[in-house]
Structure formats: C-alpha cells, structure tokens
C-alpha cells in the first residue's frame, strides 16, 4: 500500500490562526483542505512538508452566497460538490457548475475544495509519478532535478495548468480574496497565475485563499465550459475552454472572454479571440476567426494525455464550439 510519510497535523482554529501557523512554521509547512491533490503527492514524494496546516473546518472559508452586494461569494473551503450542485450557480453560471462537476469523480468532489482546485498543482507526465519512477527517469526541474524532461532545452518548467474551475472564474472576471500576515487583499483571480510550471502562483506562501467573488457585472453573461479528456470521469482536462459573452438586444456581442486551461502553465486569457467578436453580430465567420486566434495561443507539449498535435488542433474545434453555443448557433 502507498502510505504517507510522517508529518505533523496542525488543526487551525481560525483563518488568522492558520495564517499565523504558516508564518511560524516556515517553508516546511503546507496547507491542506480536501487533501485530494496533496496526499497523493505526499505519497509519491512530490510534496514533502513536515507540517500540514488544516483549513478543513474553518468557517471563514465556507458559504456560497449568490446575492451579495458585490456579487456572488464562493468560499474557498466549499467542496466541488457543493459548487456544482448549487441551485443559483447552475442557473446563473452553468459554466462553473459544469467545470466543478467535471473535476475527477463524485467521490473526489465530495472532498476536494474550490481553493484546492484553483491552486491545484501543475501536472506533467514526468512529474506525477512515484519516487521510484522519477528516480529511474532522472529527476526533473520541478522536483529534485536540473532539467525539464519534456523539453531539455527549456529553462522553464512546462507542467500543465490543470484546474477546471480557474478558467471559468477568470472568464467571469472573478476576484480572489486572500488573507495573509498583513491582512486581507483582493486581486483579480487571473493575476494570481503566471506561465511557469513551478512558480505558477503569484501569491505569497503565507497567504490563504478565503474565497472568490464573481462581480455583479458578470450576472446575465452567457457562459460555457467545454473540456477535452479521455473519459467522462477521473481525468484532468487536456484542454478546457471557458467562454463568457454578453449580447445586446440586437444580438451584437458586447463583451467576450475566452480562457483556456491545460494549454500552458497558467489559465490562458485569449484577448485576441474576444476582440474578434466584440461589437459584432456573431456569425460562423467571426467564430472561425476567433477560434483561429485562440488556437495560436495554445501551446500544448508532450507531457499530458493525448497527442499534443491533436490537443492543439482541438483548441480551435473546442473554442469554435463554445462560441457557437453562446451565440446560439449550436445547441
């Protein structure tokens, strides 16, 4: 049986306490909420914390409140099940329900949290392996090694950003609420990410995500999430397309956002694709052009399931489909 290494489990009594524990314990500490990303990685030796600070029971991280003054509040500690089954979410942001409901399996979604999915570690076929395998392969840049095994000349780790919910939140302009030693700050969620397989998060190590707010402006926007993967369950996205569009009464596109996941080490906001359709009556030609632009921004490499040539090709197909759905050209 694969087992966990030894560690100390610190049950934080409050969010403040958790942040303090993170500061006090230093870089040997990690937070744990659902544990569905963390524990497998500890069993495989990818993460080696000496302390785990548990956010599991913190009331500050709970709640899904659709009608707040600023918009929709979603606590980082809510489970993916709670999100995908929430009545208001399903009604207003079906893309979010689709994305959350597509993560792994019903079992895992009962454990895994929103925060966990937003910060899910980047993935790579050379990295998500046991210690034995990684040692046999020669360790990689992301853990214990010097070179990237996918592209030995790359200075940067190319591990794939694999969150389903992050691109959707980004497409809806969501804000992240972070609590750190200096107090609370809010930041546009997309700004928390950068295209680096190792340092893919810009947040401070001691900062904890309290929750996410989807602004009121996003209410009424049409939104969709499409996911490419091998099976209908278990599998991470090897491509995800989150799209959100709003239309005038005359069916002119007023705003558009296209965000890709699993094509680089962070959610990829494809502004060029949105620019093609905004201000237009969205027809097949415009969609084709937008999809073309999105495909150019997609750079899958050979480190996830399915042929990377195919994944790149699918970017266009999936973006086309997503936009056509929003424009009412397909159902």
């Amino acid at each position: 049986m694969l087992r966990l290494p030894e560690f100390r489990y610190v049950k934080a009594g409050s969010l403040k306490g958790a942040v303090r524990a993170l500061s006090d314990l230093g870089p040997d500490a990690m937070v744990v909420a659902g544990g569905t990303d963390l524990y497998p990685k500890m069993k495989r030796g990818q993460f080696t914390p000496r302390y785990l600070v548990s956010l599991r029971f913190l009331p500050e991280l709970k709640g899904i409140r659709p009608r707040g003054r600023e918009g929709m509040w979603i606590g980082a500690g809510e489970t993916l099940t709670a999100l995908c089954e929430h009545h208001a979410i399903k009604g207003i942001f079906p893309s979010l329900a689709q994305a959350a409901g597509s993560v792994s399996t019903p079992l895992l979604r009962n454990m895994g949290t929103i925060g966990g999915n937003l910060f899910v570690d980047t993935r790579c076929n050379y990295y998500d392996q046991t210690f034995f395998w990684r040692e046999a392969a020669g360790f990689c840049l992301k853990k214990d090694g010097e070179i990237c095994l996918v592209a030995p000349r790359s200075k940067k780790c190319l591990a794939v950003f694999s969150s389903d919910t992050a691109p959707v939140f980004c497409s809806l302009g969501a804000m992240a609420i972070l609590v750190g030693p200096g107090g609370e700050r809010r930041v546009l969620l997309e700004e928390l990410y950068r295209d680096d397989g190792i340092g893919f998060l810009t947040k401070g190590r001691e900062e904890v995500l309290r929750g996410v707010v989807i602004p009121r402006a996003a209410f009424g926007v049409r939104n969709v999430y499409l996911k490419l993967r091998r099976r209908g369950a278990f599998d991470f996205p090897v491509l995800g397309v989150a799209a959100a569009m709003s239309f005038s009464k005359e069916n002119i596109c007023l705003s558009a956002r296209v965000v890709l996941t699993a094509v680089s080490s962070c959610p990829k906001v494809v502004e060029g694709a949105a620019a093609v359709v905004v201000g237009k009556r969205v027809d097949r030609t415009a969609i084709e052009e937008a999809a073309e632009v999105a495909a150019r921004a997609s750079h899958p490499v050979d480190n996830a399931d399915m042929d990377y040539w195919y994944r790149k090709r699918m970017t266009k197909v999936y973006v086309r489909k997503a936009l056509a759905l929003l424009a009412g050209l397909e159902s």
Binding site: L4, Y9, T36, Y39, T81, L108, M111
Partner: peptide
C-alpha cells in the same frame, strides 16, 4: 491504488461517499 484514482476504498463520511485513502 491509494491515490484516489479508482474509487475502490470508498466509505461514507456523514453520509457522503469519500475516498478513504485520501482522508486522514
């Protein structure tokens, strides 16, 4: 598998199915 990749170890916690290999 002990990694949450098969569902074999499912138990109910407070009535909800969870993967017992990923709960302490």
């Amino acid at each position: 598998c002990e990694l949450g990749e098969c569902g074999t170890c499912a138990v109910l916690m407070d009535g909800k199915p969870v993967l017992s290999c990923l709960v302490l």
